[in-house]
Design a protein around this nucleic acid. Structure first.
Lengths: 113, 113
DNA sequence: TCAAATACATTGGATTCTTATGTATATTTG
DNA sequence: CAAATATACATAAGAATCCAATGTATTTGA
């Protein structure tokens, strides 16, 4: 089962930011694979969604980039800026709050972690 | 605090369907007020978002409508069709699953209900 | 060797929401 | 009683965000 794509909307950037917060630096392809793996294939980030999203995070100054060459192939690493770290905490806690509200609204019982 | 609008995207129809499942029949304005009240003003559904959404649910055969007159004013009630009831269960459980996945992904601990 | 995987990126189109506007009736308050 | 606010529907233009498709190129593994 793969979630219908509407659900991803609005959470993609938060997912990416959180991953970067946990991993210091990651490159695009790595992010897609990590998410796929962590969610047991239920969330599959497409490249058409990810790259524009990363570029927009960079344009907003939330992430910085450094390019590396692996053989002849380019690899572009993304890291959180100071602003990005603050923003990540904000977005993660907003999403947590939103999920609590939705749980109440839909009367969903979540499992205890 | 009001959630940033990206978060609502993709969940609006599920919210509406769930409310209709619990309340048999509701009209548009009532839905906006109920959601506002249930979420302590944190989710405010705009009319520009709600009405097109309701119309699309009707076009897809998930809801049926009946018009009533309260004095001279029109009131349009929405109810779930049989298909709508099935679809509601699917969407609510998909959203519940998605929220579990997001909780894991973001390492968010939700409170026990 | 040749398919699959790795790795970047962009473009066109669909969907979905916001903001603004429009119309009209009903109720509350100064 | 006039004016503001609330009730109640609706649409249209524009922004944002994502998907599918496409493109380029290198590397790995069967």
């Amino acid at each position: 089962m793969i979630y219908s794509s509407e659900l991803i909307k609005g959470t993609l950037k938060t997912i990416v930011l959180k991953l970067l917060a946990d991993n210091k630096k990651m490159y695009g392809y790595e992010i897609t694979q990590r998410v796929k793996e962590l969610t047991f294939d239920k969330i599959q980030i497409t490249e058409g969604a990810l790259y524009p999203s990363l570029h927009s995070l960079e344009a907003d100054g939330l992430v910085t980039t450094e390019t590396e060459f692996i053989g002849k192939r380019v690899r572009k690493y993304y890291s959180l800026s100071a602003t990005g770290k603050t923003k990540t905490k904000e977005k993660v806690s907003e999403l947590a709050d939103f999920m609590e509200t939705m749980k109440f609204l839909l009367d969903i019982k979540t499992n205890t972690a």
